[in-house]
């Protein structure tokens, strides 16, 4: 009886995953196997789109998306670690306000935030350049429409996705373990490497995965801040689905992005103990 109840409780989410996740992936997978620029799902299947993905210059977009994702994960982790430690150590009203302030932007449309950042970075009349000019008489250039701007935007948008899991992760580090390590002769750096990072790993890994997956699919940063200084893979896919009207090619690229994501996500996910994060 008990067993059966368990499966019944699973049914809604299983159904949801089937309809919302498995079915679309299946359709995209099918599309990726039909002739380029056709819409007939009943036609003969072909690997032409996958061949094209490796021969027609899609390496660049994949490279920039993956590099951007890794760079963003690394930067966000470096920024989020001290922030999480500080918020955890000073848990209280002040920390709650800071946490809230960091969380608020998540509820504002990403495009709006990026346009805001773009106004900030703009040369001459931009907020940053204009203020520096007015206050200190300093004229500066701009990173707008460069790769740096894309990276800044990615970090700016995805920082909370790294921070919040990391806060949970940092909460998994008992103070006495840090004390013990210090007492046993560990320097602060050694404590970080030997104790804090391994103990906070579940949170760090979840944050890194969230950030990575979101960055692989990110497009707006390169479009709005980068002036398409680089073409990211999402943009290349968008071109196939829109102006090119080449859904099969777009689908093949989508499947490849999904594959890259899976290759990163599953090995990491299998190594972390999610229960530790939840039971805490």
């Amino acid at each position: 009886m008990k067993q059966r109840a368990g499966y019944l409780f699973m049914a809604p989410v299983a159904l949801f995953l089937l309809v919302g996740f498995a079915t679309p992936i299946f359709i995209v997978g099918w599309y990726s196997l039909i002739e380029p620029r056709t819409f007939e799902l009943t036609s003969d299947l072909t690997l032409a789109n996958y061949r094209a993905a490796f021969t027609e210059g899609y390496g660049g977009p994949f490279y920039w998306s993956i590099l951007g994702a890794f760079a963003t994960v690394a930067t966000c982790a470096l920024l989020a670690w001290p922030t999480a430690k500080m918020l955890h150590a000073r848990a209280g009203r002040g920390a709650a306000i800071v946490t809230g302030l960091i969380a608020v932007p998540i509820f504002v449309s990403e495009s709006v935030r990026l346009f805001g950042l773009s106004l900030f970075l703009m040369p001459g009349g931009g907020i940053l350049a204009g203020s520096l000019k007015a206050l200190f008489g300093v004229s500066i250039g701009t990173v707008l429409n460069t790769k740096i701007a894309v990276w800044l935007g990615l970090v700016y948008v995805h920082f909370p996705f790294m921070l919040f899991p990391l806060l949970l992760g940092v909460a998994l580090i008992p103070q006495d373990r840090i004390d013990a390590a210090r007492d046993l002769g560990a320097s602060r750096w050694q404590v970080l490497r030997e104790i804090e990072l391994p103990l906070a790993l579940p949170g760090l890994a979840i944050g890194a995965l969230l950030t990575f997956v979101l960055c692989i699919g990110a497009n707006a940063e390169a479009a709005i801040l980068g002036g398409q200084a680089v073409t990211v893979v999402t943009r290349a896919i968008e071109q196939r689905f829109s102006y090119a009207q080449d859904w099969p090619m777009g689908a093949a690229l989508t499947m490849l992005v999904t594959l890259v994501t899976a290759l990163v996500v599953f090995p990491v996910l299998s190594r972390i103990d999610l229960n530790r994060l939840i039971r805490r």
Binding site: E56, G57, Y58, P61, T231, A236, Y243
Partner: peptide, 16 residues
């Protein structure tokens, strides 16, 4: 148009 667009979009992909 398709052939021209493919040339165009390949050039976009190579940017950067």
């Amino acid at each position: 148009y398709d052939r021209l667009y493919d040339i165009y979009s390949a050039a976009i992909r190579d940017r950067g």
